[in-house]
Amino acid sequence: MHLALNWYLSLSAILFVIGVLGVLLRRNAIVIFLSIELMLNAANLALVAFSQTFGDVNGQILVFFVMSVAAAEAAVGLAIIIALFRNRETVNVSEINLFRG
């Protein structure tokens, strides 16, 4: 029996919310991206904690897949940031409002 599951889940929640705040507050696209990675990691931590508490290997398989997707996302996302920077000379998201109708 490991340390109480609650602790890991709480840590996961704290990291997740820090990631959310990063997405909401920061203007730098790269830091926003980092925050997203942080949120993914928070979720991974919860998954691994559950997996180890209940002895189910599937949780860690899912973590493995999440990491793969995060890698793919990082590659594409960073490529988008580069392309964006090349066009707009900025990575400040408040100056990027292509969605405005």
Binding site: V23, L24, R27, I32, V93, S94, I96, N97, L98, F99, R100, G101
Partner: peptide, 9 residues
């Protein structure tokens, strides 16, 4: 509809 994704988030 500001077009800024953060506002949507």
């Amino acid at each position: 509809q500001t077009g800024v994704v953060q506002h949507y988030a």
